[in-house]
Simulated scan of single mutants.
Amino acid sequence: MNAAAVGLSHSPLIGTNDPAPDVLTAVAEAVEEARSFVHDFDPELVVLYAPDHYNGFFYKEMPPFCLATEAHAVGDFGSAAGPLAVDTEAARALARGVLDRGVDLTVSARMTVDHGFVQPLEVLFGGIDTVPVVPVFVNGVATPLGPVSRVRALGTAIGEAAADLDRRVLFLASGGLSHDPPVPVLEGAPPRVADALIDGHPPTPEQRAKGEQRVIQAGRDYAAGTSSMIPINPEWDNLVLDTLAGARLAEIDTWRTEWMGREGGGSAHEVRTWVAAFASLAAAGDYRFASRFYRPIPEWIAGFAVVTAELEAGR
């Protein structure tokens, strides 16, 4: 198996609350470099690690991670709706391989995904149905959150199982880095909100539009410095990137859930997708970063990063 990895931050505010033109240009150049990297690698399968924002997974049953054999996007924040091009046979093979390696894994035969899964597919591949994909949900929002060491174990097991497929596999991480958007929490929520977080009642178009407008306004307030959300933390973001760049993945086992949230904000746990992806790549061999971009972008409520990585032996 040949393998590569891409880490790509996402934000529902891209195209709505945009930063200054020079920042947009820098992001566009980094994204284009990642597209070129992916084009040259020409993956035969993409294993996509992404979180959910209470569009597909709810407290009625909230797994720490889940692999899909079929997936459908809801189309939130203007992202594409419809089925992903899931490689069902590859997904089933990876699920068996992970379980055989002693990592507990739930499997969804009809996963619902949102912009966290869709954005990287749209950005790098031009759509959600253009490349064979195995979607893997990694919980980064709903507490209680398990130790990040288990996410690393998941990534390692998927990487080892992917080797048995003998294909060019791209491990793609979506999310992070430090950010603290207005995501609802169950503890202390009013009954109507708590019921929605538990049972996952699909919002009406009006309710979805109202919720998305709240996020848009929160981004504007954040960029204006009038928000109480935890600030973006470039120091912590670069610690995460340095750790991954140096392939010092065992150090991540010492990261505590409370510390991650305190340093990076309530949704900093989306970096768990990056941990999984780079653990998968490390299972294929020694790797190195081929490119690295980082910029704190308050307008998108994100420490925004784009990273590509390849095996030391080359693509």
Rank of each mutant, 00 (worst) to 15 (best):
N2D: 14
A3V: 07
V6K: 00
L8M: 14
I14T: 06
T16Q: 06
T16L: 09
D18M: 05
V23G: 04
A26G: 08
A28K: 11
A30I: 06
V31N: 07
V31A: 13
R35G: 02
S36R: 09
S36C: 01
H39A: 13
F41H: 00
E44M: 03
V47W: 01
A50F: 12
P51D: 06
Y54D: 13
G56H: 03
P63M: 07
P64D: 10
P64K: 02
T69Y: 00
T69R: 00
H72K: 02
F77S: 00
F77C: 01
A80M: 06
G82C: 10
D87F: 11
T88R: 15
G97Y: 02
R101E: 08
D104A: 14
D104M: 10
V107G: 05
V107Q: 01
V107T: 08
V113W: 01
G116C: 11
G126E: 06
D129V: 05
V133A: 10
V134C: 04
N139D: 08
A142K: 10
T143G: 15
L145V: 04
P147A: 15
A153P: 10
E160M: 09
D166R: 02
R167V: 11
R167P: 00
R168A: 10
F171L: 10
L172G: 04
V185E: 13
L186E: 12
G188R: 12
A189P: 11
P190M: 15
P202G: 04
A209Q: 12
E212T: 02
E212C: 03
E212V: 01
I216F: 07
I216P: 02
Q217A: 15
R220M: 06
Y222K: 00
G225F: 01
T226V: 13
T226E: 10
S228D: 05
M229E: 00
I230Y: 08
P231N: 08
G246L: 07
A247C: 08
I252C: 10
T254V: 11
W259I: 12
M260P: 03
R262S: 14
S267T: 13
S267Q: 14
A268W: 03
A276N: 07
F278W: 13
A279G: 11
A279I: 05
L281P: 04
A282N: 14
A283P: 06
A284L: 05
G285F: 09
G285N: 09
D286A: 15
F289C: 05
A290R: 04
R292G: 01
R295Q: 15
I297F: 10
E310M: 02
A313R: 15
